[in-house]
Design a protein around this nucleic acid. Structure first.
Lengths: 349, 349
DNA sequence: TAGAGCCTGGACAACGTTGTCAGGCCGGGG
DNA sequence: CCCCGGCCTGACAACGTTGTCCAGGCTCTA
């Protein structure tokens, strides 16, 4: 039986297109299997002459080591998983990139998936990644119960949560200072003379949204300003609802003179509303936006450092893997107020 | 010897944290190994009662199938690789997301990496992905020679290039209609009365940049407008150089009355330059930008459909894997001119 | 009641790699 | 001349899973 048909007659077509293996290389080079392994992995103890023969065979056959098999043997995959909400969201781009850079520095690849803000899909993804035996996970939680991860963590999968805290599980968490950032943003408006300030944000069941709301309330309270219910809109998820909420708080008996927006999607919609509005209304938004400086007026924002979030999380993950790191911690990344004009407009009644 | 120490005394600490295997599950449930496999994979031929016992053992031990081993046995990894230039670039967000959605629909995971526009790094990444035995690759080329991929393609790795064509290799390519889009954009300016139109773009060795330049030249030629050398700036990679290029073509003896920008990074910089410029200059940019409609004037763009690029590429990839698709093809995704004001300004001398 | 056929379960090999270990060869020293 | 030590090399088992194949027990029918 000719060597080339060795495999095709056993299994149907599900092989890796009949790729050459170390065995094939060994046969061609006339050496033992282990010698090929040594050459491929740069291990010492191979004569230059032997090495040359092996290299030639590798070249000729187009051999490439099968890392699946390697992983099976060695126990480490040199890959980490990243589960986020939506790869297409501009906030997550720099974050992924930062995680990737750190992974690369540690010789690891990045596998990622979008949960689409759906808890079940998050779990499905995370477990699929665990089945691949990723060495670690960076998760931006969609759900609020992560007990399903317990066996994995116990089994040694390094885990770090980013952007939002995890639910019912002890693990590293890296978040922005949502509370402080929002408070500072609202204080900024108060400092510029505003008292009737509106807040439009996401559903409070999302941790970041709740924290930002708390920042708003605290700033108002500290300034001794009672907050009218009509000034707050929570759960503004669609542009349509944001638009309606903004228009409501801009009309009515006690119209707001300034608005604080809880995330960049909301901010964008509110900018559109204000663009078609006669009275000048001050605006500060959570999250920076590209071209914010080119708007008229420039958009004042509370900027998060997405790259720092990702970098910090990934670094902690690899420290867990090193064994350098033991006790789970909560790390807060500071935000930065960037004044560009829209937040410095005086109240216009 | 107690069962729990079974492995630790053999190998040092490089195991998967001593995870339970099917063998462990089988032992605990008092059944055979293959029976566990059957339950885990939902294969028929297991009594409900046996299945229950197995499920219980799985639950109790926190067992999770090791896909590395599975892959080794089955030959398909159910994962595809995506190599792009920079995850943080807003253009690639929707593209990745689209690829991911298609992968998900086919039950595959997405592994991705950024080449940082570096050919060596691209190759390194691609080969690492091949070593993991991804089923297929979606590559946004950084280099222009992809012969290194030949053994892989021959070995059955489905491959699709996106955004730019591949070099020296036969493979599917999905690109935007860069030529037509740029031509239409410049025609739009001509139609609004401009004759002295500048072009600022990337290095012509990048395929997309060259095509867009060709579109510009063709539109000008078709209109019978001779192009002055000082109207064209190629290789504008840094904001600083873009700024200088723009300022040069706006001053001088024959200043341009309109500018066509070759990509979104250039566009953004030019907007900044024009914002500080007295004379009103028309502008059309290649690539859409978030909030483009909120600028004053609104930014007219030639928009690419990044999601369509990604989706189309991924779909072809899976058709390759199905065996439905055989001959490599070049697919062009149309662009769309979106007029928002900046491109409709009349020439102001 | 015996035989045929079906259903369930398990033993075993194989996937491609790496760690362990032992054997062969060579040169130098006793 | 023999023995020892060091250096290369290769045989073999193991990683955890799945496909193949066979055995045993059951039911159903003649």
């Amino acid at each position: 039986m000719p060597e080339t048909t060795r495999r095709t007659d056993r299994l149907p077509g599900n092989r890796y297109g009949n790729r050459p293996t170390m065995k094939d290389v060994a046969a061609r080079a006339g050496v033992g299997l282990k010698t090929v392994s040594r050459v491929v992995n740069g291990e010492p103890g191979v004569t230059p002459e032997t090495e040359r023969r092996v290299q030639e065979a590798i070249e000729a056959l187009g051999f490439r080591r099968n890392d699946s098999a390697r992983v099976l043997r060695k126990g480490r995959t040199a890959s980490i998983g990243l589960v986020l909400e939506d790869l297409a969201d501009p906030f997550y781009g720099p974050l992924s990139r930062a995680v990737e850079e750190v992974a690369r520095a540690h010789g690891a690849l990045l596998i990622n998936g979008s949960s689409a803000e759906d808890a079940d899909r998050e779990q499905e993804l995370v477990l699929a990644l665990c089945a691949r035996r990723v060495d670690g996970l960076v998760v931006i939680p969609a759900g609020d119960d992560h007990r399903y991860l317990e066996p994995e963590v116990k089994a040694g999968v390094a885990t770090v949560f980013v952007d939002r805290p995890a639910g019912h599980i002890k693990a590293d968490v890296v978040v922005s200072d949502n509370f402080g950032g929002a408070r500072d943003g609202v204080r900024h408006l108060i400092a510029h003379g505003h008292r009737r300030i509106g807040f439009i944000g996401d559903m409070p069941r999302i941790h970041t949204a709740a924290e930002r709301l708390r920042g708003y309330r605290t700033a108002m309270e500290d300034a001794g300003i009672p907050v009218a219910d009509s000034w707050m809109s929570l759960g503004a998820t669609t542009p349509e609802r944001v638009r309606r909420a903004a228009e409501e708080m801009l009309s009515g008996p006690e119209p707001v003179t300034a608005i604080f927006t809880g995330n960049n999607r909301v901010t964008v919609t509110v900018i559109r509303v204000l663009a078609g509005h006669a009275r000048r209304v001050a605006l500060v938004g959570f999250d920076d936006i590209e071209l914010a400086d080119l708007l008229e007026p420039g958009l004042t924002v509370v900027a998060q450092d997405a790259a720092a979030l990702g970098r910090t999380a990934a670094e902690r993950l690899f420290r867990q893997l090193d064994g350098t790191l033991l006790t789970p911690e909560r790390i807060e990344i500071p935000t930065r107020l960037i004044a560009r004009g829209s937040g410095e407009l005086p109240p216009a009644d």
